[in-house]
């Protein structure tokens, strides 16, 4: 199973991606847009985004009043989540979490076991500063609910 997957990747990936991008590039050429993207981009004042039943209205630049706004507390499966947004010059400048799930005091014990190609460790909080965060939390329903209520106050 695994070896067949690898063969597929080595064999098929390049061919299809090249084909796909060729089609996409041909499209760009036809449109001759300076941005390299289809020229039929919608205007900035797009309609609200209905991403789910708890959708957040799509903000465009400059539509909010300046200030800090805190959303309602929403339920995530792992606890309560609350979102706060900072607005400056009508634009969102920061998204923060004033309320976050309690961390149920798990013990951190680095116990690295070497496996042939994989290694294991207990997860542990890192203190290093970061520019960007990778995670799935920002698309959770609880996040969107609280964010929507914070942005509603900023209208």
């Amino acid at each position: 199973m695994k070896s067949s997957i690898t063969k597929y990747i080595l064999g098929g990936a390049v061919v299809a991606i090249v084909a796909g991008y060729a089609i996409f590039n041909a499209n760009n050429g036809a449109n001759a847009g300076s941005s390299g993207l289809p020229s039929s981009l919608p205007s900035e004042t797009s309609s609200p985004t209905a991403a789910s039943s708890t959708a957040v209205a799509a903000p465009t630049s400059g539509q909010y009043k300046d200030g800090n706004y805190t959303g309602s507390v929403a339920d995530a499966f792992y606890g309560k989540v609350q979102v706060a947004v900072a607005i400056k010059s009508g634009r969102i400048t920061n998204v923060a979490f004033p309320v976050y799930p309690n961390n149920p005091g798990h013990t951190i014990q680095e116990s690295e076991t070497q496996l042939p190609v994989l290694a294991q460790e207990a997860i542990a909080a890192q203190s290093a500063n970061v520019n960007i965060v990778s995670g799935a939390t920002q698309t959770s329903q609880a996040f969107q609910q609280s964010l929507a209520s914070a942005l509603a106050k900023a209208q």
Partner: peptide
């Protein structure tokens, strides 16, 4: 980044969204 260093990326703790478990 603005300091001339490679961008640093935190991996969010699934149980505590304020925490990173890797950088």
């Amino acid at each position: 980044n603005g300091e001339g260093d490679p961008w640093s990326v935190g991996i969010r703790n699934p149980w505590d969204i304020r925490e990173n478990v890797q950088v």
